[in-house]
Amino acid sequence: MRRLIFTFVALLCLSFCTAMQVGAQAKAPSEYAVKAAFLYNFTKFVEWPPDVPDEKDSLLQICVIGENPFGNELENIIEGMKVGGKSVTVSYTRSAEEILSYDVVFIAQSEESTLDRMLKILTNRAILTVSDIDDFAERGGTIGFFAEDDRIRFEINVDAAEETGLQISSKLLRLARIVD
């Protein structure tokens, strides 16, 4: 009997919670929806060197390498968006050889073990590297996400940015934690 009473209480509890949920407030966005929005925003505050030969001048190409953590959040954000007159596109790949033709490369956490090699390939290229791998900026990436108090923050490795030849606006630098 006590068992039944308990189960009943548990059931009640769950349904109560469920009922409350229906009237609940707007949900907090998922981590990667926010990161996608950050990624898009970064492109507004970075200037690519004009002398880079680029046949697809009208495109700003973002590439995600590794296991795509964004789902379709990135498409949702950039859909129909233009930055500096360029249409933003996104593609996904697993092969490090393909990333050199993009403007922005997001390195997924799945690539942690090959990160150093990948960063080596990217050295001195005008490519903005972004990742949420731990200590990404410390390890030589340009912009690294980290979490603080359930909020997303980013850090910028100024030296790495300089090597790529990208111009990062002071506004972006002001909001970032600087790694040097």
Binding site: A28, P29, S30, S110, E112, D150, I152, L175
Partner: peptide
């Protein structure tokens, strides 16, 4: 964006 609290922040993949 920096002010948004997200549901879960995965630290490690």
């Amino acid at each position: 964006l920096m002010d948004i609290k997200v549901t879960s922040v995965s630290k490690k993949a």
